[in-house]
Every structure is written in C-alpha cells, then in structure tokens.
Design a binder for these strands. Structure first.
Lengths: 256, 256
DNA sequence: TGGTCGATCACTGTATACAAAACGGGCGAG
DNA sequence: CTCGCCCGTTTTGTATACAGTGATCGACCA
C-alpha cells in the first residue's frame, strides 16, 4: 500500500490520526469496528499514548464514538444522515460563497483565483463524461473548497465546514456516481466559481443551492446496496478491527 | 469557590477539561495564558496524561491554541470576532428554529414545551427590567437552546451550534448588558419560542434574525473598556502568562 | 435445565520515567 | 554596535508500568 502522504517529521499522534481517518473514510475500518488501544497501537507501531490522542481527535471529528467498556468504535454512516447533513451543509456553503463573492469585490487576486478554477472545472467536464477517473476531479473540488474558505474570511465558518466535509466524503462512498452526474457536477462547480469571480453573491448562493440539491437527490437515487444485512434494532455488528478487512473492504472506488 | 458541578465518578481528564473550560470562559485564565502541562497538572492534582487529553479538547473547542515550544495558550477573544461569529450563528440558529417549528407540527409535546418556555420568558421580562440577576435568565436561554437542539432533529447542526455557543459566552463577557437590553432580549426570546410553538417556521426564523441582529448591535455598542478588577478571593494567578509574552502580545483583555 | 452468582480476563484510565526538540540567553566575530 | 552561532534549560512528545473497572464466561444451586 502506498504511503500517499509525506509523514516524516510529524508527530506519531498526527500520523495515527491521519492514518486512521483515511482508513475509516476509505472503508478499510468498517463502521462498528472496535478500535482497541493495544491492538491499534501495535498495528501502527506506536505506543498507546499518542494513539489515545489520535482516537480522541477521531471522536471529536465524529468518525468514532466511545462505547462503554469497549473503547471507541467507528461510527456508522448511512444515507439516512444525508438529509440532515446536507441541510446543514447548504446553509454553511451558501453563507461561505456569499461572503466570498462579497469579499472578491475588493480582492482582484481572488477573482483571478476563481476565474481560473471555473476554467479548470469546465475543462474537466468532457473527460468526466467520457469516464475519466474522478480522483483528480475530487482534488479540484477540494481546491475550490479551500479557495472559498480562504476568501470567506470567517474562521468559525471554515471550521464548521471542515467537520461537515469529513462526513460528506464518507457519504459519497455509499453512492455510485455516473459519468453523466460527475460531468454535471463539474459544470455546477464551474458555475459557482464563475459567480464568485463575478462578485455576485446572490448568483453564487443560487448556484450553490442548485448544486447541493442536485448532489443530494442523486445521492439518494444512486445508492449502493447496503453491505450490512441485519435489519433489526442492532445498529452494527461489533466486528473487530483486525477482522474487518475481510467482507466489505474491497469496494474500493468502483465509481467510473 | 463553589464546586458548582458534581465531579465524583467522572474521569480526571473530564474534570480537568471542565475546570479549565470554565476558568477560561470566566476569565480566570486570561487570553494569552500559557497552559504548561506540568504546572497545570500539579495545580489540578492530576497527572500529565489526562491533562493532555483535556488540553486537546480545549484546542478542539477553540478555547486554546498550540503555540510552538510554549505549549498551548488561551486564545484571545475580542469584539472583532463578533461579526464572523454572529454571521455563522445567525445561519445556524435560523436553520435550527426553522426545523424545530416544522417538526413541532407533528409533535404536540414540543409545542407544549415551547409554549411553556415562551411564558417563562415573558415572566422574566419585568424582573430583568428591574435589575434582576441575569444568571437565571441565562439558564433559561440555555434551556431554550436545548429545546431547539432536541427538536431540530439534526445532530450535525446541534454540534456546530455547540462550538458557536462556547465562543459566544466568552464574547458576552466583553460587553455590559443593561437591564433594558436584557428585558428586550427576553421578549425576543419569548417571540422565538412562541413562533416555534405556533409551528410557523418563517416567523420563527424572522424572530431569530431580529433577536440576533439586536444582540450583535448591542454587543458592539456596549463594549466594556475596562473590565472588572481582579477578584478578591482569586486563587488562580495568571501563572506564566505575563512572563513569556512580549509587549505586543499583551492584549487589551484582562481578567474579568 | 435455567438462572444467578462468582471469578477471571481484558480493557481502559492514570501515573511516571525517558528522550527529543525548541526557545532564550550568552558569547564571539565582523 | 549588530549579527550570527552555540549551548543550557525548559518544554513537549513518547513509552511503559500500574491500578481500577466492566464484561464475559464458567460453575454452582434451585
């Protein structure tokens, strides 16, 4: 497995937090997996102390929750959470793009930034429709997110959006994204970036609502079959982390 | 110094987190104070390990920030942050009351709850105008917050609001609240509760915008230039806060 | 045979000891 | 006189050892 990020020089607790977060988001650590301290510290080659700090940050992120007596378990994620999550997300993102568009009126560099992003999104439409790998497109959307964060001028808002986006990435994995939808999404992103570059707050807000409503409705209709069969009250089977790599770990980015 | 909360049975890290958070919010730990691990662990009578966890949660809450080589320092708070904080707060609270009002349409118990709160807010108007202690009123507002949180039906939203409200309490300490303003605020809160009880989302949203805009403008105009002198029984000395800080780091905030 | 009680076990929570790294002060050279 | 470098001190980062607590499983009794 490739160490995708440059991990040298950072603290062990940061490495553990990053690794566990990616594994949870990727699904390698299935919801319900118990993150036992001794087990995970041994697996990651670190001690319990930095691992505990990493687990605490995971809990703060909402990716794990403490279970009485069993340590922390990976939180479940389902499409039922899409509605409340998008409800919040729409409010936050609309506010962010509105402020970015307003602030861009006195910031020529920001206008240039968003103009460039708009062009890059438009250039990404055709390849996506032809079935290109969406990872590059996702990186572009993260770049747009960062641009909005930096120009909205509201650290509190950026912080709230950070948490929302973490959960969003997990939700995205529950749905299959067709090339048509990805291309449409890129067009919508281009419209948002263009509206911000044009310093039109209302247009930017409307474009954002449009995009997010489309994303939500598509998320609902293109859901993947749930890997967990048990319908009764029990939320998730307490599968141990070491054995969780078996059944459902192989649904890796099959979106095409 | 009253131990206001029941601390038996909880973990040492929870106690430390709670204690430090209250001290920061109350101003006993002034902005810029260095929270050295050995010093604070000795003061609170615990070891460094649970204290570290408490500091980590403080950083996650935004009440402290890590400073390279100096440990974590209490974050500064000023009225300059009121604008972005309220910008986010308005978006979140408006969404919350809107959803609460919607959900109350199918929840008679919620309507009863908000009706009762509206009456209690109206009953609090007269005493506040006559200079009553606002602590009881603040407890009532927290009760309204909890009612909105529980009926909005959105855990993500509730979580974001939690962080906002922590910072809000710190901001509130920077401003003086006249009995007139407190009474007016109680009336506005009553209007919000009444609108939710009446299952009118738009009215509830408008009442919330009205209240928060009033609160923000009053916060700006009634700032405290020189806060309270140090408390007479104040045992917690600012420790190394003033020693390691340069002249420019000493902000206008002092212990409240 | 079913229920309940007890012991065992594993896990977390806490404390302390060790090591690395960064800041501040002091010294010397230019 | 100022700038740059070096070293001591203090701080955090990490590892490990210990204790308390809860759950699980087995045995015993009704």
């Amino acid at each position: 497995m490739p160490e995708c990020v440059y991990t040298a020089g950072m603290r062990a607790s940061d490495r553990a937090h990053l690794t566990l977060r990616e594994e949870i988001i990727a699904g390698d650590l299935a919801p319900g997996s118990v993150l036992a301290e001794v087990e995970q510290s041994a697996r990651l080659g670190i001690s319990r102390t930095p691992l505990r700090e990493a687990l605490g940050r995971l809990v703060a992120d909402g990716l794990a929750a403490p279970s009485a007596g069993r340590g922390v378990v990976v939180t479940a994620v389902s499409l039922d959470e899409a509605a409340p999550l998008f409800d919040l997300r729409i409010a936050l993102e609309v506010l962010a793009v509105r402020r970015s568009a307003e602030n861009a009126q006195h910031d020529p560099a920001a206008r240039e930034l968003f103009s460039g992003l708009a062009v890059r999104f438009e250039d990404a439409v055709a390849p996506l429709r032809e079935g290109a790998e969406p990872s590059e497109y996702y990186a572009l959307t993260e770049e747009l997110d960062r641009a909005i964060d930096s120009t909205s001028g509201n650290a509190y808002l950026t912080d709230s959006l950070r948490t929302v986006r973490i959960h969003l990435v997990r939700l995205r994995r529950l749905s299959r994204h067709s090339p048509e939808r990805l291309a449409e999404s890129a067009r919508e992103h281009a419209a948002i970036a263009r509206a911000v570059a044009g310093t039109n707050p209302e247009l930017a807000a409307a474009a954002t609502v449009l995009h997010l409503q489309h994303a939500l409705s598509h998320l609902r209709t293109a859901s993947l079959p749930a890997p967990d069969p048990p319908p009764p009250g029990g939320p998730a089977q307490p599968s141990t982390a070491s054995t969780a790599l078996g059944p459902e770990a192989r649904l890796k980015e099959t979106t095409a």
